[in-house]
């Protein structure tokens, strides 16, 4: 077929967190190139079920690159070789006929494997719970236009807020650091007047939680930003450092 390719999938299978995992290799034939990578996995799973085997477990939901549920470390890249896209936005046309594609789960001490390619990213939620919010109760808000915010700041805050919490930054980082994830949220609020009153408390609490949960130390390799499906910028980390140092110095 003209617009179809065949390839091998070398996939990490692990029945449960306790059991040891291993790679299994599967073959997919004549997959149309306009199939998404996850749809290719669906096809594989249908074939496995047909054979009476258990399908490969992987996280996915919206399949349009916004929910952050999908993960997968494909051929050495979180979310695969495409840049600025999540795994669910990856299409088979990115691969070559006859290629062996290695698919692994996110690897980080803070993200234990649940099953096969699925990991537990609850640690990211815990970091957000530590301070990723503006403390005010429903109903107490003033008029939406009461505080003018410069378009430049609002746009930059929006860029930072685009983080989908998928954990690719942690998966990409050789240190297993969640700095880009934390920095994105801290930056969003640092850039907006709404976030100012509790900026110091927030940055300290979120960083402390990140450290407590066993994420690594940032060494500025920049792999996180390079692999981020939403192009969250490395400058956010510098802003986080700045916020943190200034908060600590004023203690």
């Amino acid at each position: 077929m003209d617009n179809a390719i065949s390839f091998k999938l070398k996939i990490w299978r692990q029945a449960s967190p306790q059991e040891k995992g291993r790679f299994e290799t599967y073959e997919l034939r004549d997959i149309p190139t306009d199939t998404s990578f996850l749809e290719a996995l669906d096809i594989l799973n249908e074939q496995l079920i047909e054979k009476g085997e258990e399908p490969v477990a992987f996280d996915h939901d919206c399949r349009e690159g916004i929910c952050g549920m999908c993960s997968l470390y494909i051929n050495g890249h979180p979310h695969g070789p495409a840049t600025g896209a999540t795994t669910c936005q990856l299409y088979v046309r990115r691969f070559r006929d006859g290629e062996t594609i290695t698919v692994e789960p996110w690897r980080s001490a803070a993200f234990p494997v649940i099953k096969d390619l699925m990991v537990n990213r609850n640690a990211l939620d815990q970091i957000q719970q530590a301070g990723g919010y503006v403390s005010f109760n429903t109903g107490g808000a003033q008029d939406a236009n009461a505080i003018p915010i410069s378009k430049v700041d609002a746009d930059e805050a929006m860029d930072s807020a685009s983080c989908i919490g998928c954990g690719a930054c942690v998966a990409a980082c050789k240190n297993g650091s969640a700095m880009l994830f934390v920095a994105a949220k801290v930056s969003q609020f640092a850039l907006l007047p709404q976030g100012k009153p509790e900026a110091k408390r927030r940055v300290k609490a979120m960083l402390a939680k990140m450290d407590e949960l066993g994420f690594g130390n940032c060494t500025n390799t920049g792999a996180c930003a390079a692999e981020c499906p939403k192009n969250i910028k490395l400058s956010n980390i510098s802003r986080l450092n700045r916020e943190f140092v200034s908060a600590k110095c004023r203690d």
Binding site: N75, R107, S108, A109, F111, K174, N175, G176, F215
Partner: peptide
């Protein structure tokens, strides 16, 4: 950082 990375390494 090594312990944050976990016990399993990436194959690729």
């Amino acid at each position: 950082n090594r312990s944050a990375r976990g016990d399993d390494r990436y194959a690729v």
